[in-house]
Amino acid sequence: MGEPLVELRGIAKGFGSGEARVQALSDIELTVEAGEVVGLRGPSGSGKSTLLNVVACILEPDAGLLRLAGETVWEGRWARGDLRALRREKIGFIFQFHNLLPFLNAIDNVALAMTLGGTPLAEARVRARALLDHLQVGKRAVAMPAKLSGGEAQRVAIARALANSPRIILADEPTAALDSERAQVVMELLRGIARDQRAAVLVVTHDDKIFGSFDRLVNLRDGRIEGETRPRMAAGAQ
């Protein structure tokens, strides 16, 4: 068994109160280990994004226990004050829409994430360049986001998520804006990172074209986990 990087024990999350109360998550038990690529699927409104945002420490759960990379992050309350530093150091986040800063070119969008962690700019740019090369968008390094194609922008965004070599990578529908070929490339990249960096990758998706790329596919319905499948085992992959 690998090292558990994401652990949720009995996590619950509701929105609103009284009549308008929505129980978005109930009694979630989920573990993602180092090197694993886990998919999160379910109908619209089933709580996928909510779950991901809880893991990303963007939303505070109501009950349960959240551990990230061995550190207890939430148990009745946040265990540390500086959640942004936690995100910066441990989590890489990939959005459905790339969310690159429109006023920075590709390389600086990636370098910024590193400088926020204290890396000097010159060094950050060298590493950003290497990341972009690795993701095959190196030749677009000085292009502004508006000038990038959807696939290029998403790869730059992935480079940014990887900038601080996080152990946990969270992605909310990262392939929704891409055609199936590019979607496959992105999934291959995420698989490569999980394997090479011993990272835990948690991906929200309802894109059935990429279901085959997951080690495990967790089904959510009405805020509860409803079993999981192991697509890659089923497909007979290594």
Binding site: R84, L101, L112, G117
Partner: peptide, 9 residues
């Protein structure tokens, strides 16, 4: 919001 999400203080 993006800056906050990627950990900008």
């Amino acid at each position: 919001a993006t800056l906050k999400l990627i950990g900008a203080p």
